[in-house]
C-alpha cells in the first residue's frame, strides 16, 4: 500500500516508523519526506500481508498519525 503519513507537532519527533517495523511484519520503503519543527509528511510504501498492513495502518492512526492513500482526497466536488 502506498500512503502519505502526516505527523503533527506532538508526534513528529517520535521514531514511529522504526517502531512500526518492529511491531509488524511489513517492509517500509520511504519514497519522500519533508519534516519540519511542528509537522512532517512522509510518502511511504508498506508491503506485507493485507491484514498485517491494515493492522499497521490502524496502529499508526492510534499513534496520532494521519494516514491517507497517496491519491489523497479522492472525493471531489
Amino acid at each position: 500500500m502506498r500512503l502519505y503519513l502526516t505527523f503533527n507537532h506532538k508526534n513528529v519527533r517520535e521514531p514511529l516508523i522504526w517502531k512500526l517495523a518492529q511491531e509488524f511484519a511489513v517492509v517500509t520503503n520511504i519514497r519522500t519526506a519533508e519534516v519540519k519543527e511542528d509537522m512532517g509528511l512522509v510518502g511511504i510504501e508498506l508491503k506485507g500481508k493485507t491484514d498485517v498492513v491494515e493492522a499497521a495502518v490502524a496502529w499508526l492512526e492510534q499513534h496520532g498519525v494521519h494516514v491517507e492513500p497517496i491519491e489523497q482526497s479522492v472525493l471531489e466536488g
Binding site: 502526516t6 494521519h66 491517507e68 491519491e71 489523497q72 482526497s73 472525493l75 471531489e76 466536488g77
Partner: peptide
Amino acid sequence: AKSLAIGNPA
C-alpha cells in the same frame, strides 16, 4: 460549501 469540502487537498 460541500463541493469545496476537501480536507486534504491533492
